[in-house]
């Protein structure tokens, strides 16, 4: 079973919840940090057997000796990644979506695909948590190929917790769309609620069961609570607004050390998710 932890608004506690959820899983668990532009899961885990792999996407390489300057490759590219105004065509790797249309329409097979390295995946083990994290190289705009590679680390034998990027754009959708359940972490502020609403609409379009965790919960949660009630959203858990939790998490500790009473609630949350989704792996 795959559980994605997403938010809409950034900084609501996705990683805090993801780590705590992984720590309270019923068995072995895979934790996939898909926030590849700002991954931080590693800060909270002591990893062993760390390995790194480079991630690449295929981009066209044009052989200028065989190119006949017909311009068909530039015509078919919907992403403006190839420009043609004479010989040879210019390729902008950073705009390429690797669909390979250019290669297929080239009448003289002058185009081959070559790897363009855009990031890496770091994997390691921490107790029962099998952790993988994607890291997009600085200067590369497309996060989704790295996210998809991280998600491929899911081996199908264990439960998976996906730490999603914030927002509701391509990156977030790539991270959550194959999951069986989405937990949206929010906070009781107008910003938190606004972005929660957008995130809920997004997840509904993907037809994935969804629940809400209110972080930094305090008097004045009514805004979010009312919205959840009106929209039939289950509030799965509340994490109290606590100086102690903040202090522990900001020094690399985890939620359960900061609030031991949440351990039972997280274990119950796993049960609830199993029950809601039918519990298949």
């Amino acid at each position: 079973m795959k559980v994605a932890v997403a938010s809409g608004k950034g900084g609501t506690g996705k990683t805090t919840v993801s780590i705590a959820l992984a720590m309270t899983s019923p068995g072995m668990v895979q934790l996939l940090d898909c926030d590849v532009e700002e991954p931080n899961g590693h800060l909270f885990l002591e990893l062993e057997n760390v390995i790194e792999e480079r991630v690449s996407v295929d981009v066209p390489l044009i052989n200028t000796d065989t190119c006949i300057s017909c311009g068909k490759c530039a015509q078919i590219c919907q992403f403006n990644a190839i420009v043609f105004f004479g010989s040879p065509p210019m390729v902008f790797n950073e705009l390429c979506h690797s669909y390979g249309g250019c290669m297929r329409v080239c009448p003289v097979s002058a185009i081959t695909e070559v790897p363009n390295f855009i990031g890496k995946i770091v994997s390691g083990r921490s107790g029962r948590i099998d952790f993988s994290q994607g890291i997009l190289d600085i200067g590369f705009p497309m996060a989704t190929p790295v996210i998809r590679k991280v998600l491929k680390k899911a081996d199908g034998n264990n439960d998976v917790v996906i730490d999603s990027p914030p927002g509701t754009s391509c990156s977030m959708i790539a991270a959550v769309k194959e999951s069986d359940f989405v937990i949206l972490v929010t906070e009781s502020t107008p910003f938190g609620l606004n972005d929660l609403m957008i995130a809920v609409e997004t997840i509904k379009k993907l037809s994935i069961p969804v629940g809400v965790i209110i972080n930094r919960s305090m008097a004045g949660d009514d805004l979010v609570e009312k919205y959840c009630e009106d929209n039939n959203l289950k509030i799965l858990m509340k994490i109290p607004y606590s100086h102690k939790i903040a202090k522990i998490c900001s020094t690399g500790g985890n939620l359960i050390t900061g609030a031991p009473d949440l351990k039972k609630k997280l274990e119950d949350l796993w049960k609830f998710i199993f029950w809601t989704t039918g519990g298949e792996k």
Binding site: F79, N80, A81, V83, F85, F92, L95
Partner: peptide, 12 residues
């Protein structure tokens, strides 16, 4: 309203 590559197409 091009999603990407507006500058390249404008140059063209």
């Amino acid at each position: 309203n091009a999603a990407q590559g507006a500058g390249i197409q404008a140059a063209m």
